[in-house]
């Protein structure tokens, strides 16, 4: 398994776990100030991402320092394109729910949720494309 595929697996797992954590935070206090829920979500994401990337780089220093090659760039570009569609759909869904009566606070949480899902989707698309190749 290549370094970038390992990285996609690990980052996908981090997004999934922290995304569930964020959903639980929102479910427990849906009308709480947004910043009060974002900070306990964003900080673990940053810390876990740094630790995960440092461990992966320690295990494969050469691959970690190498630039993505042509196939990897195509995989990442295509995964980014598809995840952009996921994000767009999520934002449209969030806006629709806001028009349907959701509060502005829940709109923000729904958009953050769409960002999380889109990021998770990007890593999953990368894994899929790396395994299937182009």
């Amino acid at each position: 398994m290549s370094f970038r595929e390992k990285s996609a697996w690990v980052m996908g797992a981090i997004m999934l776990v922290t995304g569930v954590w964020y959903a639980q935070l929102v479910a427990a206090a849906p009308q709480a100030p947004v910043i009060g829920l974002l900070i306990p979500y964003v900080l673990p994401v940053i810390v876990l991402s740094i630790i995960a990337q440092a461990v992966l780089a320690f295990l494969s220093p050469r691959e970690a320092n190498a630039r993505a090659d042509e196939r990897e760039r195509i995989v990442m570009d295509r995964a980014g394109h598809w995840s952009g569609i996921v994000l767009g759909l999520g934002v449209i869904a969030a806006i629709s729910m806001y028009i349907g009566g959701w509060s502005a606070t829940l709109l923000v949480h729904a958009i953050v949720g769409a960002l999380i899902v889109a990021q998770l989707a990007e890593y999953l698309f990368q894994v899929f494309l790396f395994r299937r190749t182009i």
């Binding site: 290549s2 595929e5 691959e63 190498a66 090659d69 042509e70 196939r71 990897e72 790396f130 299937r132 190749t133 182009i134």
Partner: peptide, 26 residues
Amino acid sequence: LGEAVGVTRHTIIAIEQGRYSPSLET
């Protein structure tokens, strides 16, 4: 081979297995 032509070992594997067509430059 990958190092000599500027791609990863995994890309060479994919080329050899016929799963990936390299760029004209590669």
